[in-house]
Simulated scan of single mutants.
Amino acid sequence: MREKDKVVLGISIGDLNGIGSEIILKTFQDARMLEFCTPVIFASVKLMSFYKKALNLNVSVHGIDSLDKILHKKLNVYNVWKEQVPVNLGKEEKQAGEYALKSLEASVKALKDDKIDVLVTAPINKSNIQSETFNFPGHTDYLAKELEGDSLMLMVTNSLRVGLLTDHVAVKEVSENITRELIEKKINTIHKTLIKDFGIVRPKIAVLGINPHNGDNGVIGKEDDEVLKPTIDNLRNNGKVVLGPYAADSFFGSGNYKNFDVIIASYHDQGLVPFKTLSFGNGVNYTAGLRKIRTSPDHGTAYDIAGKGIANHESFREAVFTAVNIFKKRNDYAAFSKNPLEIQPRKTFSKKK
């Protein structure tokens, strides 16, 4: 039985040998988290009991074999499998990836079937999770296939949002992937996301250049002049507040990013290096543009510290807060759009440290 206004939050376990289980359990050691959402871990009770003992964590779990048996104010563990799985913390192993995929597939199915409201994914290893059913460079592309829509990797904190035109693409292939059609699609997606999911009425968007110094009038590359600038002009002429392209090397250091609701980077490291420098440990990866909500922490499996009990769970906790808040914002937007004169917005919760 669902409680009114209680968000059911699914959690995929991630790589079994990484820090995923540690940061999940540490997050829900704080009983106050159960007031904000009802968590459901997609794994097995046997596995979570192993982690609790190995990491000396004091947190109760409630095992269920049906998603109709979810209990509120409990840390639910849905048994995706029953067998005991060997865990070698800190080791990259194929089997760990296979069970990470089992968890992910089960949690995404539950999301599609409306058994859970939102999904938070613990980190996977992009190599050992590859299989016949998962042939993607990461979560974002997999979720785009499963959940439909124009997916976009959006990194968020309370004071900074960074989106990407290209994400897990080799550097040598970046410029050939950035077309006018791609730019328009990505910026339209982020514009809609900021309105629906973050409650920003008139988003202000900055776009970073593709080449150093925006190509220096074609000396270092023509893509900025021939592709990026005309597309930005067209978007602006159609009513969107889109400015740029800005030279990426000085944009963050100058503090100019503070003047915008989102910054669009051309490729992965151009956006994520400054993002993680400014916010590492508190950032959240949000897959914007999909019909369902998915967030994750801004770090990887961290094999080097797995099993040592020292993993910082702040980013995972922020991913939980972000997923719940976006769910409520999106519902408020839908209600306003349907009958704007009668519906009053519901307040989102305040994070408790």
Score class of each variant (00 low, 15 high):
residue 56 N to A: 14
residue 112 K to T: 14
residue 228 L to Q: 08
residue 342 E to W: 14
residue 68 D to M: 15
residue 341 L to E: 10
residue 276 K to E: 01
residue 96 A to D: 02
residue 151 S to Y: 04
residue 324 V to Q: 06
residue 78 Y to T: 11
residue 326 I to V: 14
residue 131 S to R: 01
residue 175 S to N: 11
residue 179 T to Y: 01
residue 220 I to N: 12
residue 38 T to C: 10
residue 235 L to P: 01
residue 324 V to H: 05
residue 152 L to C: 13
residue 243 L to A: 12
residue 285 N to T: 07
residue 31 A to H: 12
residue 220 I to G: 11
residue 46 K to C: 12
residue 122 A to H: 06
residue 281 G to V: 06
residue 218 G to P: 08
residue 223 E to S: 05
residue 308 K to N: 09
residue 292 K to V: 01
residue 71 L to K: 12
residue 263 I to Q: 00
residue 40 V to D: 05
residue 312 N to R: 02
residue 303 Y to N: 03
residue 181 E to N: 12
residue 83 E to P: 03
residue 211 N to S: 08
residue 171 V to H: 11
residue 86 P to Y: 11
residue 279 S to Q: 09
residue 148 E to N: 14
residue 334 A to E: 14
residue 200 I to L: 11
residue 336 F to L: 13
residue 59 V to F: 07
residue 338 K to S: 15
residue 320 V to H: 05
residue 190 I to S: 05
residue 266 S to A: 12
residue 299 H to C: 04
residue 40 V to T: 08
residue 31 A to I: 11
residue 195 I to L: 08
residue 197 D to V: 10
residue 245 P to Q: 07
residue 282 N to G: 13
residue 264 I to N: 04
residue 183 I to H: 08
residue 70 I to C: 00
residue 230 P to A: 03
residue 273 V to M: 07
residue 150 D to G: 12
residue 211 N to H: 10
residue 230 P to Q: 05
residue 239 G to Y: 06
residue 186 K to N: 07
residue 302 A to W: 05
residue 6 K to H: 11
residue 281 G to S: 07
residue 111 L to P: 00
residue 281 G to E: 11
residue 40 V to M: 09
residue 162 V to K: 02
residue 16 L to T: 07
residue 216 D to C: 06
residue 111 L to Y: 05
residue 125 N to S: 11
residue 2 R to F: 15
residue 162 V to A: 04
residue 223 E to V: 04
